Simulated assay, not measured.
Amino acid sequence: MATVEAHHKCSANVELLLGRRVRYQKHKPGRHLSLDRMPQGFFQIESVHRFGSRVVLNDGAVTMESAPTVMERGGRIALLLATGEELYFYVE
Rank of each mutant, 00 (worst) to 15 (best):
L81C: 09
E85D: 13
Q25Y: 10
Q40R: 15
V70E: 03
A67C: 05
A82N: 11
E92H: 05
G30N: 10
R20T: 15
T63E: 11
S34V: 03
H32G: 07
R31C: 07
K28Q: 05
M38D: 03
V55P: 05
K28N: 04
H8D: 10
A6W: 04
A12C: 07
L87N: 07
R50A: 02
I77P: 02
K26S: 14
G60Y: 01
R23L: 00
R20S: 06
H27Q: 01
L17V: 03
E86T: 13
P29N: 02
R54K: 15
I45F: 01
Q40F: 04
A6E: 15
V14G: 03
H32C: 13
Y90Q: 12
S47G: 14
A78E: 12
V4D: 08
A61V: 07
G84D: 12
G60Q: 02
L18W: 07
S34K: 15
E92V: 01
R76C: 06
F89H: 04
H49P: 00
F51K: 14
K9C: 15
N58F: 09
T83S: 15
V56Y: 02
F89K: 01
D36N: 11
E65T: 12
K28F: 00
H32M: 13
T3A: 13
M64F: 01
L33G: 06
A12W: 07
K28C: 01
L57T: 07
L33R: 07
F51Y: 07
H27A: 13
L35C: 11
S66H: 09
V4P: 00
L17P: 02
G52Y: 03
Y24V: 00
A78K: 14
H32I: 04
R23F: 00
H8R: 14
R31N: 12
C10I: 05
R21F: 03
E92Q: 09
F51E: 06
G84N: 06
R73W: 00
R20F: 05
Y24F: 09
L87T: 04
R20K: 13
P68C: 04
T63I: 15
E65W: 05
V62A: 06
I45H: 02
S53M: 08
H27M: 10
R73L: 08
R37P: 01
G30P: 08
L33E: 07
R20Q: 10
Q25P: 00
E15W: 02
M64E: 02
R50Q: 09
D59G: 10
L81K: 12
V62K: 04
E15N: 15
R54H: 06
L57F: 08
T83D: 05
E92N: 06
S66G: 07
H32R: 11
V62S: 09
T3I: 12
V62P: 01
R23C: 02
R50L: 03
L33T: 08
L57W: 08
L17W: 04
N13I: 02
S34W: 12
G75C: 14
T69S: 13
F51R: 15
V70W: 06
Y90E: 08
